[in-house]
Design a protein around this nucleic acid. Structure first.
Lengths: 341, 341
DNA sequence: ATACTGATTGCAAGCGTTTGCAAAAAAGAT
DNA sequence: ATCTTTTTTGCAAACGCTTGCAATCAGTAT
């Protein structure tokens, strides 16, 4: 089909190292994969030779032979969203500390066939998978059936059989709402996320709880459902701004929808925070870039990524470990988008 | 070391498919990797069985045996930067069209040992590499020496031996500068990027050329060197704002530094665009989010990613192809950050 | 010394695919 | 029918690495 494919420079293999140091290649393999019963002297010689020859393990061969590939997969909806970027950064940093590589998968390519997709990923060479995808339909069943190590980031699992990293959504929403209340606001609009998503529900609950604790009646009209994207925030805000007594503050369930809301508010000729105060959720990098700088509830996104990696590796090492759930604290970051009533 | 690793559910292999359809596994392999001389009937049966059994190719085995892994690597400095995100999005989209997977590598993990790092990547299982890293010290030599397929995105290569995708930096800078001149500005500050970077130099040249063509003397004092990051933009702008007759406009060599400049300008109590007009470069997503919305030179980042993938695959298919360079057009996007003098 | 013990090391068998080579089939030509 | 060609297919040998099992050593207790 092709004439003499310029055979990739034959790479340095364990056999080369073995020849070089005079031990068998099995010993080399053992040194390289950290087996304990190897004479210290041998180990040193092997390591030195590997270094000198510029040896690079062939992940393919390694995983074929039954070892760990030291590659983990990250499944995300897309990269076009500061949120994911931050999580990914944390993941990447942690991974590099432990010398693992990362395969990046985005779901956009398989809308509707996510489950098949998860299946493929699990059957390729990754040792485990981190899922930052909302609406995880039936991914989980396949993964669980195969006993494949995975961690969910900021995603609830109905079955409670998954490793999960998330943040205190309820508390964050409560704090944000209470902050607005203490500023004198009582007509506080809420732009929610999709109600199928656990974190969206938790934030709604936190909002309700804060209202209740401050004796403010919950008004369903003040809740507009969005989907966490900027344009839905824009739409939701528009509907909120049509309300009779205008709300004096809006709590958006994430920063992106807060940005959308800001657009809508300005478009109506109102100003922030003079006419309407606004609070977001997430604290993605852009939050401090917009004008006015957005007051928001910070999720430690990068740390969530780091923790996810730790949990995943733990699970890989230790397949029988029961699933855990780690919830990190959120924190209200006060900037310039709110004003006392 | 571990007691009976719950052996990953044995995956479906070509042998299973062979058994199922009654042909030899070599034939299955040929069908699956698109070999042409297979009877149509056989091909169908194999494909059907593969589908039915839920076959997923084992990339490791495939690449070991000398085939293509259908995985390409993407090396970037980090994800914390809208610019990279856009490029990555384009790459990802194109890759999914052709059914390739992506390994993501960030350089932060190996500052100073980038060359060794590139070596590892090239020797692992990727079929090729896309580099979006600035300052590519000696990556290239190793890659070239190994004859490993790669593409540079928005990066010049002194040796002219590389596949490159970039944009019309010079023209973009020229257009931006001319736009400001036509608005009546003549003291136009420039926040440059690091002069080691080709695109930074080209933008500077475009700026100079526009001035020259409009008979405005080039004043070195109006040029402040930055490094494409927001904070350097802030610093650079500060120094520009110390100048005697204040510049009335600033052209920042990328959006991030434009944002930094905006911060600095506001901090000095000046307003944009009333007191100072500002133009950026890149048109990352945040550009239309900041207030006022940033007028900037758009680079078709996602398209650059897509083109990079195409070039890379082409190079992989076709190792003897001489390196090409594709330059995409930039375009001035006028928003709200500039005003006539 | 001699047998015994546990630490080290080597051998060989696989892991799932690709592919060169040769055999088997099918299709043409005579 | 028979001999050629041209398609299709099957066999077997890699590819680089891990690991169970058996052999070799070195150290200890007898």
């Amino acid at each position: 089909m092709n004439g003499t494919p310029p055979r990739k420079n034959r790479q340095v293999t364990i056999v080369d190292i073995a020849r070089e140091t005079g031990v068998s290649y099995s010993t080399v393999s053992r040194v390289l994969s950290g087996f304990e019963f190897v004479k210290e002297d041998t180990r040193q010689r092997v390591l030195e030779a590997a270094q000198r020859l510029g040896y690079v393990a062939n992940i393919g061969a390694r995983s074929l032979a039954g070892g760990k590939s030291h590659v983990i997969g990250l499944l995300v909806p897309g990269l076009d969203n500061g949120y994911i970027g931050e999580v990914a950064r944390g993941i990447d940093e942690e991974l590099s500390r432990v010398n693992y590589d990362l395969m990046l998968y985005t779901t956009h390519r398989q809308r509707g066939k996510e489950s098949t997709y998860a299946h493929s990923i699990a059957n390729s060479l990754t040792d485990g998978l981190i899922l930052v995808v909302p609406l995880l339909t039936d991914y989980l069943q396949r993964l669980q059936a195969q006993n494949f190590p995975y961690v969910l980031v900021d995603q609830g699992d109905p079955t409670n059989q998954s490793n999960i990293v998330d943040a205190t959504n309820w508390q964050g929403a409560y704090a944000a709402t209470e902050y607005l209340i203490n500023l004198g606001h009582s007509r506080i609009g809420l732009i929610s996320g999709l109600m199928q998503i656990a974190s969206a529900r938790e934030r709604l609950e936190g909002y309700k709880a804060a209202l209740a604790d401050h004796k403010i009646a919950f008004d369903p009209d003040l809740v507009a459902e969005g989907d966490f994207w900027q344009s839905s925030g824009y739409q939701a805000a528009l509907s909120l701004l049509d309300l009779k007594p205008l709300p004096t503050a809006i709590f958006a369930s994430n920063d992106l929808s807060a940005f959308g809301a800001m657009d809508a508010i300005r478009e109506r000729g109102l100003s922030i925070p003079e006419d309407i105060s606004i609070v977001g959720f997430d604290d993605i990098p852009q939050a401090s870039l917009v004008h006015p700088k957005l007051t928001t509830v910070r999720q430690p996104l990068d740390q969530m990524g780091r923790v996810a990696v730790q949990m995943l590796l733990d699970q890989i090492e230790n397949p029988s470990h029961p699933p855990r759930r780690i919830t990190l604290a959120t924190q209200l970051i006060v900037r310039d988008s709110c004003k006392p009533r």
